[in-house]
Amino acid sequence: MNPNKTNKPCVYITTSKGRGVVYIGVTSNLSERIWKHKHGVTEGIVKKYRVNQLVHYEWFDTMEEATSRELELRHWERAWKNQLVTSRNPYWKDLSHELW
């Protein structure tokens, strides 16, 4: 992946091992944010439940578009979120390797 692309606005979904917790976030630097998730730098739910497996991400042209999508996804039922991830990543593999 082009390293410059990881500096675009993005909505991402991470999960804990076993898919117990699903976290939706927005960032302008996906590589850095996922590094923080993986190294326990991010406090709160991410650190507490080790929500560090990147399973879905979507790029946007503006942060406003990304933030709007994040809010939309946060209001979805869990089953819909699961279907979104499964439709693009059927085995829920960690996609973080695509960033480096």
Rank of each mutant, 00 (worst) to 15 (best):
K36N: 09
G25T: 06
E72D: 14
I13E: 06
N89P: 04
K17Y: 13
V51C: 15
S28L: 05
T27H: 02
H37T: 04
V22A: 12
K38A: 05
E98F: 01
P90V: 06
H75G: 15
V11L: 08
E43P: 09
N2Q: 12
V21N: 12
G44V: 07
N82D: 14
V11I: 13
T67L: 12
E77T: 07
N82H: 06
L84M: 08
A79N: 09
K47C: 10
P90I: 03
G40L: 03
R33P: 00
L54I: 04
K93A: 11
V51S: 09
N52Q: 08
G25F: 00
G20D: 12
L95H: 01
W100F: 13
G40R: 07
T27D: 01
V11E: 03
R50Y: 08
T62S: 14
T6P: 02
R50P: 01
E77A: 13
K48T: 14
H37S: 01
D94F: 07
Y91C: 08
V21Y: 11
T62A: 06
T67Y: 07
T15I: 14
T27F: 00
R69Q: 07
K36F: 06
P90K: 08
I45L: 14
Y23C: 11
H37K: 02
G20R: 12
L54F: 02
Q83R: 13
V21Q: 13
N29E: 06
Y49F: 15
T15Q: 14
S87F: 09
N4M: 14
H56F: 15
K5L: 14
W76E: 08
E64C: 02
H75F: 10
K36S: 10
L73K: 05
D61Y: 10
H56Q: 10
T86Y: 10
T67Q: 13
L54E: 05
N89C: 03
M1A: 14
Q53E: 09
R74V: 12
S16H: 08
E70M: 07
W100H: 03
Q83M: 09
H97A: 13
L73D: 02
W92M: 03
T62K: 01
C10P: 01
W35G: 00
T27Q: 00
I34K: 01
E70G: 00
Q53W: 00
G20P: 02
T15C: 14
E43W: 07
R33E: 07
N2R: 10
R88E: 12
N2W: 08
K93F: 07
A79F: 08
E98V: 00
R74A: 08
K81R: 10
H97T: 05
E65L: 05
L73T: 07
K36A: 09
K36R: 09
K17Q: 15
R33C: 04
I34M: 06
P90G: 04
V55L: 10
H39D: 06
G44Q: 05
H37D: 02
T27N: 01
T42V: 13
F60C: 04
E64A: 15
R78E: 12
Y91W: 04
